[in-house]
């Protein structure tokens, strides 16, 4: 089953006098359990693409199917519900809620649901997730008491808490040093292998690609799919 199916996705930003065409017709399919890296230079449209896939933004034209169901122009709260139920987000800047501790941040997306699950069950699952990402000893630390890498681990656990069909990560390692980056990528690779979580993340860091099973290259708003070797050659060229 394909989780995502994009057909001819275009995105224009209307800046009044001029128009910026950020995506010029993107076709992309992501299967369940894949670990896909969207790779491309700055300004190529990675964030724009992930925003559309994440239902944070709507395409100007083209068709987007999520779990074989077309995402049609729905209102804010409908899209919010889709985001909450189907998609986990990992941000470059971690984006944790400062006043909530680790475990509360992990639980947060589940708690804002119309019908939240039982407290004890949620707490048990969140605790397990915190342990899975290596934050067992930090459950009651606030984000400002954690390192960047630890914060991103919280974000990963939070993204998984709702048991989404897809986890999106826009340059999740851009604010981390290379060692921490490797650990974060390792963690995501493991979660992908062990739990079958479907990951789609963007980067313009070629080093990250050695972990990727599949690389989608984007340049100037268009997709160029290829093998790892081709990309390495391109990167070194």
């Amino acid at each position: 089953m394909s989780i995502i199916k994009l057909q001819g996705i275009k995105k224009e930003y209307d800046l009044g006098k001029t128009k910026v065409i950020a995506l010029k017709g993107v076709d992309l399919e992501v299967q369940k359990g894949e670990f896909t890296v969207v790779m491309g230079p700055s300004g190529s449209g990675k964030t724009t693409l992930l925003n559309i896939i994440g239902c944070l933004d709507r395409q100007t034209s083209g068709r987007y199917d999520l779990e074989d169901k077309e995402v049609v122009g729905k209102d804010f709260d409908d899209l919010a519900a889709i985001r909450n139920e189907k998609i986990g987000f990992i941000f470059q800047m971690f984006n944790l809620i400062p006043v909530l501790d680790v475990i509360e941040n992990i639980e947060f997306p589940c708690l804002v649901r119309q019908v939240p699950e039982a407290k004890a069950k949620l707490r048990a699952r969140a605790t397990q997730l915190a342990e899975d990402v290596g934050l067992g000893p930090y459950l009651h630390h606030k984000p400002d008491e954690l390192s960047g890498g630890q914060r991103q681990r919280v974000a990963i656990a939070r993204a998984l808490a709702t048991q989404p069909v897809l986890v999106l990560a826009d340059e999740p390692t851009a604010n981390l040093d290379s060692k921490t980056s490797d650990q974060i990528i390792d963690l995501m690779v493991h979660l992908n292998k062990d739990k079958g979580v479907t990951f789609l993340f963007s980067t313009h860091d070629p080093r990250v690609m050695k972990h990727a099973r599949r690389v989608v290259r984007i340049a100037d708003g268009k997709i160029v799919e290829g093998t790892l070797e081709e990309h390495e050659r391109a990167a070194h060229a």
Binding site: D77, R83, N95, I97, V112
Partner: peptide
């Protein structure tokens, strides 16, 4: 924005 992303409603 983060809250909106994880599905918090407008209300």
């Amino acid at each position: 924005g983060t809250m909106m992303a994880v599905g918090v409603r407008r209300r």
